[in-house]
């Protein structure tokens, strides 16, 4: 602060139109945010423009022979097909089929993963499960999708098992990390104040574990989602993956891309709207901490 600043403060005069450091910082932040959004939107515009007007020619040139425009419809056509399919009403049904599979598969996976995470607190069980967890974390989901497709065909158990095998470990790792980091000093405090075990669990253990469970949920869900669609591509008679397979078999690229578009929108909706809303609702205290 300069001397003039101090005088203004002492005299109690209004800091007339003076630009404070805070204002400058806020301006800089806004500018940075605007330019970030600009570039982000620009990337969409650029990709869509190239796709609409030039991609067919580029691919034809690269192939050395002209490409059938039907095999590479532009974004405008995909959007038109999107509304067409939407009007037919197959989309909600396909989503419902896929989401039901995810809900059942990932629900079970979450329970199993959490249970193993709890068991792994004992060193014997840790030894027992350790490598299985590692394998599940590192093996590509496609392996389980193929194996379960071969064994179970289009029975609903196939995708369920594939989802469990690919996602349980993410939940396990997070749960066991959360348990290991239990706030002992808070539990001791509660014990010395004679707070009941039930209340200690409800108000200390569960809120402490919640962010860990949430991380497991978030990552596990994103994988369950991909694996489910994959299982449907290989072995199912309904769902988004199945619809994709049908359009691919029929060489209906416009419809194929439409399903991808729908998939993309839905994933974005889940991530940006649903999960972030949960985060805002239940982890308000964390935002309060970072805000100060």
């Amino acid at each position: 602060m300069t001397t003039t600043d101090t005088h203004t403060a002492v005299d109690g005069a209004a800091p007339a139109q003076r630009v404070t450091e805070e204002d400058l910082a806020r301006q800089a932040r806004r500018k940075e945010l605007t330019s970030r959004w600009f570039w982000r939107i620009l990337s969409y515009v650029a990709v869509l423009t190239v796709w609409e007007f030039a991609l067919l020619d580029i691919f034809s040139f690269l192939r050395g022979s002209p490409l059938d425009p039907k095999l590479l419809p532009g974004p405008s056509e995909v959007v038109a097909t999107f509304f067409e399919i939407w009007g037919e009403g197959t989309m909600p049904a396909a989503f419902q089929a896929t989401l039901t599979r995810i809900a059942v598969g990932f629900g079970l996976s979450f329970l199993i993963g959490a249970m193993i995470g709890i068991l792994m607190q004992s060193k014997w069980f840790e030894g027992f499960f350790k490598d299985a967890v590692l394998i599940s974390l590192s093996a590509p989901g496609l392996i389980w999708v193929l194996i379960t497709a071969i064994i179970f065909g289009n029975r609903p158990l196939g995708p369920t098992i594939a989802i469990i095998l690919t996602t349980f470990a993410l939940v396990t790792v997070n749960v066991s990390e959360g348990i290991r980091a239990l706030p002992k000093e808070l539990l001791d405090m509660a014990k010395s104040f004679r707070v009941s075990v039930l209340k200690r669990n409800r108000q200390i253990v569960i809120p402490h574990l919640a962010p860990y469970l949430f991380t497991g949920l978030r990552f596990g869900f994103s994988i369950a989602w991909k694996v489910t669609v994959l299982t449907e591509v290989f072995s199912s008679s309904e769902g988004i993956g199945f619809e994709m397979r049908i359009s691919a078999v029929l060489f209906d690229m416009s419809e194929f891309l439409t399903w991808i578009l729908a998939f993309f929108f839905f994933a974005l909706f889940l991530e940006k709207v649903v999960l972030e809303a949960i985060e805002r609702r239940y982890f308000r205290w964390r935002q309060a901490v970072t805000a100060t």
Binding site: L186, M189, S192, F193, P207, W285
Partner: peptide, 14 residues
């Protein structure tokens, strides 16, 4: 008994 600890030991989520 009541206790006051070296650190406040408050539940951060409450």
């Amino acid at each position: 008994p009541g206790y006051v600890f070296q650190a406040a030991r408050l539940l951060p989520w409450r």
